[in-house]
Computed example of a mutant assay.
Amino acid sequence: MIKVLKPGLYSSIQDFGRFGCQQYGVPYSGVMDRYSAGLANIILGNAPDLAVIEMTVMGGVFQFDSDTVICVTGADMSPKLNGETIPQNLPVKIVTGDVLSFGKLRKGVRCYVAVLGGLLSEKILESRSMYQGVTKQSVLLKNDIIEITTSSSFLIIKNALVKLKDEVFENDYLEVFKGPEFDLLTKNQQTFLMSNSFSISKNNSRMAYQLEECLENVLEPIITSPVLPGTVQLTPSGQLIILMRDCQTTGGYPRVLQLKESSINVLAQKFTGDKIQFNLLEY
């Protein structure tokens, strides 16, 4: 098992989310950056969608009470094992009593810790993802215990060599498709939307990322309609809101764009003040 000595900031257990429950108002949830979380699992030989620990901006401190193997991916939070620096994106052997900690944030926003065999926290509605109102708690707390599969096998080197995609951290372009209300925008609005850079505001979370720059909006609110992670909404004030993994299931603001799945991963590693630009794709 893993004992949480310090939880870090907004740390939680997440897998790839809940599906088939949106008609009941239950969000998808799940890891913000599926690429990085899936990579950690794949390196360990796990299925990519197994539950991992997700940390935001500041990592925690975790003590292992059994032997296992871990992999740390995503944001570089200076991971250490028993005070010694360890590599990311490679399997790391853990023995009983080892302590995993994190330090200075060097790159990205969200970091992932996968464990051989996955985390065995409670599964609700076919997912282990934490979400307030669905699970008992929405974040990890000090002294929490996370059950894992005990393993003395370290024979996973065959999965250690995986090509990394640096664009998750380095790409400032978000690939998008037209949203249902995109064609209601004027040509000038469409041009402004696709030719300008936008800044991530301080209002960013697992639910949504708000952008600083506004787009003049004369559109009427729409009848409440389905929304998804990656939906870009245009508010009456002209502010753009990009919905993320914990977003609501319906909304009444015009849906002008829809992010490609890989672009949600890119955005999940952006921080306040970072610039992004939309790149429109054809269906």
Rank of each mutant, 00 (worst) to 15 (best):
S263P: 06
A37R: 01
L81G: 03
G252A: 05
L240K: 03
S127R: 07
E213H: 09
G179N: 01
D67L: 02
T56M: 07
P87H: 13
P254M: 08
T272V: 15
L50A: 05
K163R: 14
E147G: 02
L259Y: 00
S11H: 04
F177T: 09
A268E: 03
C21F: 12
K202V: 09
N203V: 10
M130F: 14
R110I: 06
V26K: 00
K142D: 10
T224Q: 11
F64Q: 05
S29T: 12
S205P: 01
S12D: 00
L267I: 05
F177S: 06
L161H: 15
F198P: 00
N41P: 07
D144T: 06
L100D: 00
I264P: 01
V99H: 03
M1K: 10
S205L: 06
Y112R: 02
E122W: 08
P7E: 04
M77D: 01
P87K: 12
L240G: 00
T135V: 11
S237E: 12
S66R: 04
A75V: 08
F182A: 06
V26M: 07
V69R: 01
V162R: 15
S78A: 10
P27V: 10
L259P: 02
Q239Y: 06
S127F: 04
S11A: 11
N46V: 03
A114P: 04
Q190P: 08
I264L: 15
D144L: 05
K123G: 02
E213G: 07
S153H: 12
I148R: 00
Q210N: 08
P79H: 07
G252Q: 03
C71M: 06
D183S: 13
P236W: 10
Q14W: 05
T56Y: 02
P221S: 14
Y253V: 11
K260M: 13
S127G: 13
G59L: 05
T150I: 14
V92M: 10
S129N: 06
K93A: 12
Q190G: 12
A47C: 10
Q63T: 12
K107I: 12
D246M: 07
F198D: 00
L193A: 07
V115E: 00
Q248E: 13
V266Y: 14
N196Y: 09
E84F: 09
S129K: 04
G83Y: 06
Q210K: 11
A75F: 02
N41G: 06
G20E: 09
F19A: 14
E212V: 07
D98K: 08
Y28D: 04
L215C: 07
S153G: 12
Q248S: 10
S78E: 13
Q23H: 13
G25R: 14
T96L: 15
M1I: 11
S29Q: 09
V232C: 09
V72L: 03
K270A: 15
A114V: 07
I124D: 03
D246R: 12
V31I: 13
T135E: 08
Q14S: 11
L215F: 06
S129D: 03
G60Q: 02
K6Y: 07
A114L: 11
S237I: 08
V72D: 01
T150W: 10
S195Q: 15
Q88E: 13
D144F: 06
D274T: 03
T68P: 01
L243Q: 04
L228I: 09
Y173K: 15
S237V: 08
R206A: 13
K158R: 15
M244W: 03
N188Y: 14
Q248V: 12
L240P: 00
G230W: 01
F177D: 06
L193T: 03
F192L: 13
